[in-house]
Simulated assay, not measured.
Amino acid sequence: MTISATEVRFDDDFMWVYLQDGRAFGLPLTWFPSLKKASDRDRENVQLSPFGLHWESLDEDLSVAGLLSQARSFWRKHRGATKRRGNRRISAKMPVLHAPSQYRGINRKSAA
């Protein structure tokens, strides 16, 4: 069974990927230079397939399996990296596993 992306959203720093099983995660755009340099219009022109994401105008293809693997390995490598903010300890570099509400509804492309 393959996990498919149902939606992709962008903000200034992250690409948010939403999966058919309800999971979502954010990855830094610095990991994807062609997407970081692209215009909002080019980023929104993503084609979703059962296996990944494709941007024809940018000649960029990303597999969902590869993105999940990157997020998992990054988290394992940086899970001890924490800092203090007020009375809370927060992860300094851990990828986001769900999108905060302030990112919902911006620059998004959904599967039909």
Rank of each mutant, 00 (worst) to 15 (best):
V46W: 02
I90Q: 10
Y103T: 10
A111L: 15
S63E: 07
W31Q: 10
I3W: 01
T6G: 01
L35N: 05
W31E: 11
T30A: 12
Y18H: 12
W55S: 08
K37W: 01
G22L: 04
L48G: 04
R84Q: 14
L58N: 03
P33F: 08
T30R: 14
A92P: 00
G66M: 06
N45K: 10
A99T: 11
Y103Q: 08
M1C: 00
R108E: 14
P95A: 07
P50E: 09
D21V: 02
K109H: 13
D11I: 07
D12P: 00
R84V: 14
A24W: 02
L68E: 15
W55K: 05
G22D: 04
E44W: 00
Q70G: 06
F10Y: 15
Q102A: 11
R104H: 14
I3M: 11
F10D: 02
R89M: 11
H78K: 11
P33Y: 05
L27A: 08
K37R: 15
L68M: 15
W55T: 08
E44M: 14
G66V: 05
S4K: 10
D59A: 13
R104M: 08
D11E: 07
G26R: 06
R85I: 15
R9N: 03
G26T: 08
L29K: 11
L53S: 03
A65Q: 13
D12F: 06
D21H: 06
D40N: 12
A92Q: 12
H54G: 01
A81N: 13
R104S: 07
A24I: 03
L97M: 13
L58D: 03
P28I: 00
G66S: 14
R108A: 15
E56C: 04
L62K: 04
